[in-house]
């Protein structure tokens, strides 16, 4: 790996720019492939470049053989994100666990007393109202959204924004009763049953635990399941 490539990779990690590094196994020559440009000392065949761009879309690194040459395509996509609405007790272990599992965490709570640095060291905190926060965050297909505040004024607008996005996972805390009421309120906003089925409620895999950390674990497990296996589990 050339020093120039190393510097580029370090910069892109900060800028959240998707790219793939392609290295030819036989000599170590390399190229960094972006969606619209290429950089490096490897004159990669167009079939390899196409494979690299496909790998970026699939988020899947791979060793390929092209014309008797082996190339390793190493995909670097920005980290997956988890947006947690409500800086409640469960949010504390969830932020820690999800961070360990490779999520960038943002906690949103307009109630300033909840989302404090003391309770969430090292976590990105936003005290905007959820609709403003969600507009700023712009959830994409690498984003999970979890609502935990238990307050419809805070949770509902975030869920509505999540349903309008491509978020790969949406979870909402609350028992069956309160989830039913929540679905009715969202129906009144114009969401149909198919769309509402994207919300996982009661939230989390059924692990049986009741402690905040156990519920956090169930939520994180369900989000990871959706990431790799889709909503079918």
């Amino acid at each position: 790996m050339r020093s120039h490539t190393l510097e580029q990779l370090a910069e892109h990690a900060k800028a959240r720019e998707s790219h793939a590094r392609v290295v030819r196994i036989s000599d170590g020559n390399e190229a960094v492939i972006y969606n619209e440009r290429i950089d490096g000392n490897l004159e990669a065949p167009s079939s390899v470049i196409e494979a690299a761009r496909d790998a970026i879309r699939q988020d899947h690194s791979a060793l390929i053989t092209d014309n008797n040459q082996r190339y390793f395509i190493h995909v670097h996509n920005p980290p997956r994100r988890m947006i947690v609405i409500g800086a409640v007790h469960i949010t504390q272990p969830l932020a820690q666990m999800a961070s360990l599992a490779g999520f960038d965490i943002t906690v949103v709570d307009p109630r300033g007393a909840f989302a404090t640095v003391e309770r969430f060291p090292g976590v990105t905190l936003m005290d905007d109202w959820p609709d403003d926060a969600m507009a700023k965050i712009a959830p994409d297909s690498r984003t999970a959204v979890v609502t935990l505040s238990h307050d419809p004024k805070i949770d509902d607008p975030a869920l509505a924004a999540a349903l309008r996005s491509k978020a790969f996972y949406i979870g909402a805390l609350g028992g069956r009763n309160s989830h039913g009421k929540r679905l009715n309120r969202l129906k009144d906003l114009g969401f149909n049953d198919e769309t509402l089925a994207r919300i996982n409620g009661p939230v989390g895999l059924d692990l049986g635990g009741r402690a905040p950390a156990e519920i956090a674990c169930a939520i994180l497990a369900e989000a990871i399941q959706h990431l790799y296996k889709g909503s079918k589990g």
Binding site: S3, L6, E7, L9, A10, A13, H74, H76, P79, G102
Partner: peptide, 14 residues
């Protein structure tokens, strides 16, 4: 360690 940490460590040592 994730890829970003590896790259950052490589930069530091270099």
């Amino acid at each position: 360690a994730e890829s970003d940490e590896i790259i950052a460590q490589a930069m530091t040592w270099r």
